Amino acid sequence: MHLFLLLYVARRPQLVSSPLSAPSVRLLATDFGTTALVFLASVPLAFVSPSGAKWCRLVLVPIRVVLGQLRRRRQEA
C-alpha cells in the first residue's frame, strides 16, 4: 500500500507541500518493494516451514541497513 501511495504522490507533486526528488522516490520505492516481496515470499514458505518463514523475514534487516546508508549518503550530497 505504501508503495502505491508513494508512486501516486510522486506523479502528482501538487498533493504535497514539498515535491519528492527522483532519487528519493527510487530509494523509497526500493525499500517498500523489497519489504512487500519478502513478506509475499514468506507466505507460501510458511505452509512448508513456519519457522523458515520467520527466518526469511530477517533478510529485511541487512536490506534496510544498506538502504538507510544509501539514503544518508544521498542526503549528505
Rank of each mutant, 00 (worst) to 15 (best):
M1K: 13
H2K: 10
H2Y: 13
L3S: 04
L3N: 03
F4A: 13
F4C: 10
L5I: 08
L5T: 10
L6A: 04
L6E: 05
L7Q: 05
Y8C: 09
Y8V: 07
V9C: 12
V9D: 10
R11W: 11
P13C: 01
P13R: 02
Q14H: 14
Q14W: 14
L15W: 13
V16L: 08
V16A: 12
V16T: 09
S18T: 13
P19Q: 02
S21C: 04
A22I: 13
A22G: 08
A22V: 14
P23E: 05
S24T: 14
S24V: 07
V25H: 02
L27E: 05
L27T: 02
L28C: 08
L28Y: 06
L28K: 07
L28Q: 13
A29I: 07
T30A: 15
D31T: 12
F32Q: 10
G33I: 04
T35K: 06
T35F: 08
T35E: 09
T35I: 07
A36V: 15
A36S: 09
A36H: 05
L37A: 14
V38T: 06
F39D: 03
F39R: 01
L40R: 03
A41H: 01
A41G: 01
S42M: 00
V43E: 08
V43S: 01
P44A: 01
P44Y: 01
L45D: 00
L45A: 00
F47P: 02
V48S: 13
V48G: 09
V48M: 06
V48Q: 12
P50A: 11
P50L: 06
S51A: 12
A53V: 00
A53D: 00
K54R: 14
C56H: 09
C56D: 00
C56P: 01
C56I: 05
V59K: 00
V59W: 01
L60D: 05
L60W: 06
L60A: 04
P62C: 06
R64W: 15
R64E: 12
V65P: 01
V65R: 03
G68K: 04
G68H: 05
Q69S: 15
L70N: 07
R71K: 10
R71C: 05
R72D: 11
R73F: 00
R74H: 15
R74L: 14
R74I: 02
Q75L: 13
E76R: 15
E76K: 11
A77G: 14
A77T: 12
A77S: 13
